[in-house]
Amino acid sequence: MLTLLFSLGEIWADFNIVLKIFVIMTIYSWVKNHFGNSVLGWVVFGATCFFVIFELWSIFGGIYLFYMLLLFGVSQILIDFFFITAGAPPGGAAGQKGLESPVSSGKELAGRQAQMAHAQRNFAQSFMRR
């Protein structure tokens, strides 16, 4: 148990180092884009690194991780979870039909086609009765 905890602590520390390297690279790239290779640029780089990496790492580390997740498109997963998946259930609301499940086999497709043909036949018969 103690070994596992030590190993988890080591993993945590190592990934912190990796994340700090990525943050330093991001700051360097941002400063170089805005200030070029000037002295002022190096001063801004040093000050930003001091505050972000050493002073307030517990805040900025989390913020950077969140920023990276958003950049990779994790918000799309949340939208899919809570909006697309949470659509109306099949035949739930009055007169409305929910999203159909994807077709997984030929048998299912044949069943759906038969159901559609039956619905069309019913519609035609009711139309002729008028």
Binding site: G73, Q76, I77, D80, I84, T85, P89, S101, P102
Partner: peptide, 22 residues
């Protein structure tokens, strides 16, 4: 991350979500 970039995870969410809604 690779699959996320290709929007492949959305397909999985959609497929599982619609199939397991009941």
């Amino acid at each position: 991350q690779f699959l996320l970039g290709l929007q492949f995870l959305s397909v999985i969410i959609w497929g599982l979500g619609t199939r397991l809604r009941g």
